Amino acid sequence: MNPEAWVALALSLKVAAWATAINLLLGTAMGFALARWRFPGRELLDALLTLPMVLPPTVLGYYLLVLLGKRGWLGGWLHEQLGITLIFSWQGAVVAASVVAFPLVLKSARAAFENVDPQLERAARVLGLSEAAVFMRVSLPMAWRGILAGVLLAFARALGEFGATLMVAGSIPGQTQTLSIAVYEAVQAGQDASANTLVLITSLSCIAVLLSARWLAPQRSAA
C-alpha cells in the first residue's frame, strides 16, 4: 500500500475518532434531555437535529459552508476573534463528520433512555441521590447498550463521510483528503489500482467497526 493511502487512513481515523467523541457527549446529553424533559417544540427540535440523516450531503455541506465560511456568522466570528479558520482544514472535516453522524447517536441514546424504567430513577431520588448521581448510577448504566450501538454506527458513518467533508474541507493530500475522498480522486484520475486498494481498506475498516460492536456488547454485559 502506498504512503498516501496510509496517510488517508490515519486522517480518516483521526477525523472519525474526534467526531465520535464529540457526538458521544452531545448526542448522549441531548438524547437524555429529549427522553426525560417535556417542553413545547420537543418533537420539532428532535426533527431538526435528525435532519442531517436525510439531507443530501451536498446540501448539508452547503449549509456548513454558509455557517463556517469567513462570511458566515460563526465562521466570521471565529476568524476575527480567535483566528480560527475551519474551512479547508481537518478540523472542518471533523465538524462535517460530526454533524452527519450526530443523529445516529441522538436517536439511539433517546431510545435507550426512554427504555429505562422511570420508577428506578424515582427510587434512587427517594434514597437521597442527586440528579447527577441518578444519571451516572442508574440511567446511564441501564442505557449503555443503545448508546454504544449508536456510537459505533456514528464512527462507521464518520469514517465513510464524503459529500459534506469534500465541500467543507476540500481534498488536500495529507491534510484533508480522507479515504472516501482519496477513492474519488483516484477514480477521477483513472488510477484503478489505487482506487481498488483504498476501497478495500475502507471496507475492511468498516467491517472491523461492525465486528467490534458485536464483540464489545457481550464483553460489557458479562462484566
Rank of each mutant, 00 (worst) to 15 (best):
D192S: 11
L152W: 06
L82A: 15
P218F: 05
A186M: 02
P218Y: 03
M53H: 07
A10V: 12
A156Y: 01
A217K: 12
P141N: 06
L216Y: 00
G150F: 03
A96H: 02
A143H: 08
L82Q: 13
L129C: 07
T20V: 01
R220W: 14
V7I: 13
L25H: 04
V15H: 01
A213F: 07
R145M: 10
L25D: 05
V209W: 00
L204P: 03
A143D: 05
L86E: 01
F113P: 03
V199N: 08
F162D: 04
Q219M: 15
L179E: 05
G150A: 08
L198C: 03
S180L: 00
L49K: 09
L211I: 12
G83A: 10
D46H: 09
L24I: 04
L120R: 13
A19L: 07
M30K: 07
I84Y: 02
S203N: 06
A97K: 02
A97F: 02
A156H: 03
H79V: 05
A123R: 06
R137K: 15
E161F: 12
V168G: 02
A223E: 10
N2W: 12
T28P: 01
L78F: 06
L106K: 01
N23Y: 03
G163H: 02
V126N: 09
A112W: 04
A133N: 13
R220Q: 13
L179T: 06
S194M: 14
I87F: 07
A33T: 13
E131N: 13
S171C: 06
A133V: 13
V15R: 00
M1Q: 09
A96K: 03
W77A: 14
K14Q: 09
A164P: 10
S108D: 08
S212I: 11
A93H: 00
N23L: 04
F135Q: 02
A97W: 00
A21P: 03
A195L: 05
L55N: 06
L55A: 14
S221H: 08
A97N: 03
A213E: 11
V66M: 09
A10S: 14
K14F: 05
A112D: 07
V126A: 13
Q188N: 15
C206R: 00
F113C: 09
G61H: 04
V99H: 00
S212D: 00
E43A: 14
V187L: 14
G92N: 04
S171E: 04
Y63I: 10
T28M: 04
G61K: 05
F32I: 06
L106G: 00
V116N: 07
T176Y: 00
L153T: 11
Q81A: 15
Q119P: 09
L148H: 07
Q175N: 08
L64Y: 02
A189I: 08
L211H: 05
L120V: 12
M1N: 11
L152A: 10
G31A: 09
T202S: 15
L86T: 01
S98W: 00
F88Y: 14
A223P: 04
V168H: 03
L64H: 01
S194G: 12
L9G: 06
G163N: 01
Q219G: 15
Q191S: 04
R36L: 13
V99D: 00
M167L: 14
R137Q: 15
L120N: 07
L159E: 11
L127Q: 12
V59G: 13
A189S: 15
P57I: 05
E4Q: 15
E80C: 08
A154I: 03
A164F: 06
A217E: 13
K14I: 05
L148C: 14
